[in-house]
C-alpha cells in the first residue's frame, strides 16, 4: 500500500461521522439501554442486568425464528447465486439487447418492498391472480394463506424474482472485465466450456460474487416487508422471520426489554457473518492490487 500517512484526513471523514453518530449511535445506545432495564410503565425504569438476554437465550420463540431465518437465507443463497451466474453467462455482451436486458433485470430492484409484496400477493391469489388461477385450473391445490409449504414456496419464489438480478448484474460486471486474450488462449488450448468457466470466468468473478453473496446474505437475513405483506408471518408462525418477530415484539406488544435484547443478539449474528465475508473480500482486494 502506498497511501500517504496523514491523520488530518480525519477532517474529511468528520461529516460522515457526525451524521452516522446521530442516525446510528444514538439509536443503538437507546436499544442497549432498554436491553438492561425493566419498566412497569410511567417511564419508570429498573435495572435488569442481563436478565433479558438470559430470557431470550432460553426462549423457544427466538430460536425458532432464528432457525426459520437461517433456513430461508440458506435456500435463497443456494438458488439465487447459481441462477444469477447462469443468467449472467447467457446475457448478450453489447448492443441494444444488452441494454434491454440490463434495464428489465434492474426493474424489480427498484420496486418498493411492499409493492413487491403486493404484486405477489395478487399474482398468487387463486381467484384473481395469474399464478394462483393457473395452478388451480391445473388441479394443484395451492393456497399460500393456509398451507405452510405453499407460503414458503411463494415467499422464496418472490425473493428469487426480486433479487436474482442483483447477483446476475454483479456477475455480468465481472465477466465484462475479462480481457479477450484470456478467451483466445483458452481457444488455442482447446479448453472445454466448463474449463473456461472454472479456470477463467469463475476466478475473475470471485470478487464481485463475494459482494453479491454478502449483500444477499445481509438483506435476506433482515427481510421484513415482502413476506409480511404476502403472508403476514403466517399461516401460524411458519413464515415469521427474525425481523417480523422483532417488530411484533417491539411495536405490537411493546415488550421493550426482550425486544432490545433480541435486537442486539440479532445484530451481532449479522455482524459476525458479515465480518468474515468482509475480511475475505479485503484480502482478495489486496491480492488483486499486488498482482
Amino acid at each position: 500500500m502506498d497511501k500517504t500517512q496523514n491523520n488530518r484526513a480525519w477532517f474529511l471523514v468528520l461529516p460522515v461521522l457526525i451524521l452516522v453518530a446521530f442516525s446510528a449511535v444514538i439509536p443503538l445506545m437507546t436499544v442497549v439501554n432498554y436491553s438492561v432495564q425493566d419498566t412497569f410503565g410511567n417511564n419508570q425504569f429498573f435495572w435488569a442486568g442481563l436478565d433479558w438476554f438470559r430470557d431470550m437465550l432460553h426462549s423457544d420463540r427466538m430460536w425458532n425464528a432464528l432457525g426459520r431465518q437461517a433456513i430461508f437465507s440458506a435456500i435463497i443463497l443456494v438458488i439465487e447465486v447459481p441462477l444469477g451466474i447462469l443468467v449472467a453467462l447467457h446475457m448478450p455482451r453489447r448492443g441494444f439487447w444488452a441494454s434491454f436486458c440490463l434495464v428489465v433485470m434492474a426493474l424489480p430492484l427498484l420496486i418498493p418492498f411492499n409493492v413487491v409484496g403486493t404484486i405477489w400477493q395478487i399474482f398468487g391469489r387463486v381467484d384473481i391472480g395469474l399464478l394462483g388461477h393457473t395452478l388451480a385450473s391445473l388441479g394443484i391445490d395451492y393456497n399460500y394463506t393456509s398451507d405452510p409449504i405453499d407460503a414458503w414456496v411463494t415467499v422464496i419464489v418472490m425473493d428469487v424474482w426480486h433479487w436474482t438480478s442483483l447477483v446476475a448484474l454483479l456477475a455480468y460486471a465481472g465477466l465484462q472485465s475479462i480481457p479477450e486474450a484470456y478467451y483466445q488462449a483458452a481457444r488455442i488450448d482447446q479448453a472445454s466450456r466448463w474449463a473456461v468457466f472454472r479456470y477463467i470466468e469463475l476466478p475473475k468473478m470471485q470478487g464481485v460474487l463475494l459482494i453479491a453473496i454478502l449483500l444477499r446474505f445481509m438483506d435476506s437475513f433482515m427481510i421484513y416487508t415482502e413476506p409480511f405483506v404476502v403472508t403476514g408471518g403466517g399461516p401460524g408462525n411458519t413464515t415469521t422471520f427474525l425481523s417480523i418477530d422483532l417488530v411484533k415484539m417491539a411495536i405490537g406488544q411493546f415488550d421493550l426489554g426482550p425486544a432490545a435484547a433480541f435486537s442486539i443478539m440479532y445484530f451481532l449474528v449479522i455482524l459476525l457473518v458479515s465480518w468474515v465475508f468482509y475480511t475475505v473480500m479485503t484480502n482478495l482486494d489486496r491480492k488483486d492490487v499486488t498482482r
Binding site: 443503538l28 437507546t30 436499544v31 445481509m218 437475513f221 425481523s243 425486544a259 435486537s263 440479532y266 445484530f267
Partner: peptide, 10 residues
C-alpha cells in the same frame, strides 16, 4: 448491515 427493524423504535 443493521436490520431496519432494530432501529425502527429508537
Amino acid at each position: 448491515m443493521a436490520p431496519p427493524a432494530v432501529f425502527a423504535l429508537p
